[in-house]
């Protein structure tokens, strides 16, 4: 790998981008589909390296879910066939050491199973690479560094500079994945390579059950006396009724508003 040779433009076939993909599920019907964050990661990979970006999946080949990724315009999936109970991390570490990549993209959480979101972190730890969580875009790659746009809450963005190779998880704020086409999805290659994978023993002891609705937190009034409780139950919450400015010129009124906006830090 010679990172210096990457020119500052995209769809760069020299850049080795790999996307780790998983089978998602529809939130209502539970039907297998491409996972939405993983699909965004594939979309970003397509933007970065065109159709030379790789798709890697560990597990049994669930046809319907995985083929949707192929329908996005990629010729094949590297399918590392392992038992459903296997631990994906050692397999991926071995694979990424054999066939290195510059950028590894994946979703934040899986849509099935435990969905701990730990796989990218463990890979980063074992490979010794940096990890950037929740990215929205990769702006440029040059001289062994990438400028990455990280998604923050409330639609904000942060620019980070990270050295190659790195792992990134793709946020829902990233551009939507393109629609998949049926024909390419059918034609794409999905040849499994059987790998020996240790079974994840600890996980076998856990129990999985359908999600129970979480109890809503109630506003418990901690009243010491009956009068207190009565008041809490009946009294109308006192409208704190903020400051009201009736008199003065428009100028003064506008200044009062501006002060509040500055004090709250929304106007810089």
């Amino acid at each position: 790998m010679s990172p210096d040779s990457f020119p500052n433009s995209f769809s760069n076939p020299d850049l080795k981008v790999a996307s780790l993909i998983s089978v998602g599920q529809h939130p209502k019907s539970g039907r297998a589909r491409r996972a939405s964050q993983d699909a965004r990661a594939v979309e970003l990979g397509l933007k970065m390296a065109g159709s030379s970006s790789r798709l890697i999946h560990v597990g049994g080949g669930d046809e319907t879910g995985l083929r949707q990724y192929l329908g996005m315009g990629l010729p094949e999936i590297t399918l590392l066939e392992a038992d459903g109970r296997a631990d994906a991390v050692p397999i991926l570490v071995r694979h990424l050491k054999e066939q290195p990549a510059d950028i590894v993209l994946t979703g934040i959480h899986a849509e099935r199973g435990e969905a701990s979101g730990m796989v990218p972190y463990l890979l980063a730890e074992y490979l010794g690479w940096p990890i950037v969580p929740r990215i929205a875009d990769i702006q440029k790659v040059e001289e062994g560094f990438a400028e990455v746009l990280q998604a923050l809450p409330r639609g904000q963005r942060r620019l980070l500079r990270v050295s190659l190779p790195f792992i990134a998880t793709v946020d829902n704020a990233a551009p939507d994945a393109r629609q998949y086409a049926f024909g390419p999805a059918r034609r794409g290659l999905m040849d499994g390579v059987a790998v020996d994978a240790p079974v994840d023993e600890t996980r076998l002891e856990w129990q999985e059950s359908p999600a129970k609705p979480r109890p809503k937190r109630l506003n418990v009034v901690k009243a010491k006396s009956a009068a207190d409780r009565f008041k809490a139950a009946t009294a109308k919450p006192q409208g704190q009724g903020g400051k009201v400015i009736r008199d003065g010129t428009d100028r003064e009124k506008a200044e009062a508003i501006m002060e509040l906006l500055i004090a709250e830090g929304v106007v810089r």
Binding site: P27, R112, G113, E114, A115, G117, W206, Q207, P210, K212
Partner: peptide, 29 residues
């Protein structure tokens, strides 16, 4: 360490965690 994630009910021995897509609960130590 293997972390307990999305945990919503935790005591000293036992945790309940939300799984993927908020559709499952995982009961684990």
């Amino acid at each position: 360490e293997r972390p307990v994630v999305h945990a919503w009910q935790v005591d000293a021995d036992h945790s309940v965690c939300r799984g993927g897509s908020q559709l499952t609960d995982w009961h684990r130590p």
